[in-house]
Each structure stands twice: as C-alpha cells, then as structure tokens.
C-alpha cells in the first residue's frame, strides 16, 4: 500500500515535496481560468431619423438672427429710418406667444424683418431698440416634391424625415418663413399631433380655416401612413416623433425654407 507523502512523521517533508506540484497546479489554474472579456460589439446604428455624422459645413450656413419684441407692441415701418408707421403689431400674439421676427437685414439701429402677415414674404423695418436679438444656427428645409424635411445645424444635417404637404387645391406655398409660436394641442392624438409650430406664412387659397386666418404650420399627425402624400390644407405634416424632436430643439424664429 502506498504511503501518502504527507502522512505521519513525514508530514513536513511531504509538504515541501508537494510545494512544487501545488505551485504548478496553481499556475495552471491561473492560466486556464483567466478569460479575457469579449470585446464589446460596436454599437449598432439607429433608425433613419437619428442624428447623422457631421459633414463638412456648407458654405453660407450663417447664424440667423431672431428679434423678439420687448414691449406690448411694435411699430413696423416701410423704410429704414422711416417716419410713417406702416403697421403696429401687438405682443404677445393671438396665441399668447411673445412676438418674434426673423431678421433679414441688420443695419445697426434698424432691422429689416420678415413679417407674419399677408402676402407671404412681406418685410418691414423695426427699431433695434424695440427688440431683443438672439441667434440660431438651426434651419428647416422642406422639399415638397420629395416629401421630405431636413433640419440643419449650421452646415450639418441633424434630422430628416417624411412629410405630408398640401393637396392640389390647397397647396403648400413655397417661400421663406419662420416659426412664430409653438403650441401643444390638448389632444396629442388629434389632427395636429403632439405639437404644432406656427409659420409666418399663410395659405394662398384659403383666407380662413378652422376659425383662423389660414395660417400655415409644421405639425404632427395622427395619421402617419398619410405622410409622403399631398394630404393637407397647406400645412407641413411630420411624424409625432419628428415634431417632438423639433419642439425640444428648435427655437421660435427658426428659419423655414419651403422649396419650390
């Protein structure tokens, strides 16, 4: 019968003899037990509407200036430095939003601004002292022919998605506009979706609509399947996800260019 190496009076001697093989066993265990963690899989890209990689800034992607009225009303003049008031607009506007304009020209004491009145594209002059100036690098470009919108931050495309545009009898008029106010409808599942940005432009075929002056807007929808079609009375419809993103990122006064 074999005698175990560490039995009886030979225990210490046996222990020493076991040291080398135990050490070898420990080293072998360490080598085989250690496993490197698998390399993290690279993140998968998101949906088509996720923020895209930065591109080279386009030429001419200048910061837009936004003029917000500081008083209860503002006088609009037909000419720079003019003495005759062409129009007076109240602030806040009919929805209760601070009156704001997109600045077309900054001449120091005087600003030429885009007006939220008919006909579309109307401009006027205001005193710089009557407004507070801010800026934004965002702009929204709408392509009715392609049924798409694109939001740019400077020269970088940051968001895009499908749109619904006006039917043939109530077309979406091309032109340069800006966001005049942001509304949150009481029913997010209604026709205007989760949010609605009013535009400075108006329908060229409807003088009034739903009790309003025929004002254009960019808003969500409860019928996303209708996007990609001529379906509206002039407004630009986008998905509720897209309008929610806009509501969280785009300020009042953001320029909107509807191609055509």
């Amino acid at each position: 019968m074999y005698r175990l190496a560490f039995a009886g009076s030979d225990a210490r001697t046996g222990a020493r003899r076991l040291l080398a093989p135990l050490a070898a066993a420990a080293v072998l265990t360490a080598l085989t037990a250690c496993q490197s963690a698998p390399a993290d899989a690279p993140d998968e890209g998101g949906g088509a509407n996720e923020e895209s990689a930065a591109e080279a800034p386009a030429e001419g992607a200048a910061t837009a200036e936004i003029a917000t009225v500081v008083g209860d009303e503002i006088e609009i003049f037909a000419e720079e430095g003019g003495e005759e008031v062409a129009e007076t607009l109240a602030s806040p506007n009919d929805f209760g939003a601070d009156r704001a304009f997109l600045v077309e020209q900054n001449r120091g004491e005087w600003l030429e601004v885009l007006l939220p009145v008919r006909p579309n594209g109307s401009t006027g002059w205001v005193r710089s002292a009557d407004v507070e100036l801010t800026g934004t690098d965002f702009r929204l470009e709408v392509d009715p022919e392609a049924f798409t919108f694109t939001v740019f931050d400077g020269g970088e495309e940051v968001r895009s998605g499908p749109i619904g545009t006006g039917e043939s009898e109530t077309p979406t008029p091309p032109g340069r506009y800006y966001f005049t106010e942001l509304l949150q409808p009481s029913d997010p599942d209604g026709d205007y979706g989760a949010y609605a940005f009013g535009l400075s432009g108006h329908s060229e075929t409807l003088e009034t609509f739903a009790g309003g002056p025929g004002q254009l807007a960019v808003h969500g929808t409860n019928d996303p399947d209708a996007l990609g079609q001529r379906i509206s009375h002039g407004c630009i419809r986008v998905s509720n996800d897209d309008i929610t993103w806009m509501a969280e990122n785009l300020p009042i006064g953001t320029p909107v260019e509807i191609l055509g």
Partner: peptide, 19 residues
C-alpha cells in the same frame, strides 16, 4: 429638457392652422 435646451416652452392651446 426644454428648459435646458433654451427653447420656448410650448403653449397649451388648440391650433387653428390650415392643417
């Protein structure tokens, strides 16, 4: 999020846009 982004808080109101 809206306040952090510096954007205007939305006004709760029913629109009368052309839709």
């Amino acid at each position: 999020l809206l306040e952090e982004a510096g954007v205007t808080n939305p006004l709760v109101a029913d629109p009368n846009y052309t839709g």
